[in-house]
């Protein structure tokens, strides 16, 4: 039985390109999010960079999560249960900010993303 409530699914359908991080996503993404949470600590970030494979194994990532991390693919991480607040700490390791991450998910350049943001203020 799915724990995904009808309501959440409906909302996601009503707002295309939006993912509600609910109980089902939180269970699915637990290992990935736990690894990203560990990046609050500088020593853990260094350990990840030293041996990415070993670090992902230590946190028990699923194949889907490991592939998304390997490809630095934020949308794939979200589909694998990632929560953006923790994923931002992963992105930070590579010096990427929320605009880089936003542009990647939209499939546009960072410059185009910045223009899009600004245009909504007009």
């Amino acid at each position: 039985m799915s724990m995904h409530t009808v309501h959440t699914t409906e909302i996601e359908e009503q707002i295309p390109g939006t993912y509600i991080f609910d109980g089902e996503a939180a269970m699915k993404g637990y290992a990935l999010n736990k690894m990203c949470y560990s990046f609050n600590n500088a020593e853990n970030r260094a350990e990840f960079l030293k041996d990415e494979d070993a670090y992902c194994r230590k946190y028990g990532l699923t194949d889907e999560q490991r592939k998304a991390i390997c490809e630095r693919n934020v949308l794939a991480m979200i589909h694998a249960g990632g929560c953006i607040y923790y994923l931002a700490k992963f992105a930070g390791i590579f010096g990427l900010n929320v605009q880089d991450v936003g542009a990647q998910q939209r499939g546009i350049t960072v410059d185009a993303f910045k223009k899009l943001i600004k245009s909504q203020g007009e």
Partner: peptide, 13 residues
């Protein structure tokens, strides 16, 4: 603001 998903960058003045 919205940080995640294909709708990232959404603003509603």
């Amino acid at each position: 603001h919205q940080l995640d998903g294909e709708r990232a960058g959404f603003i509603n003045k």
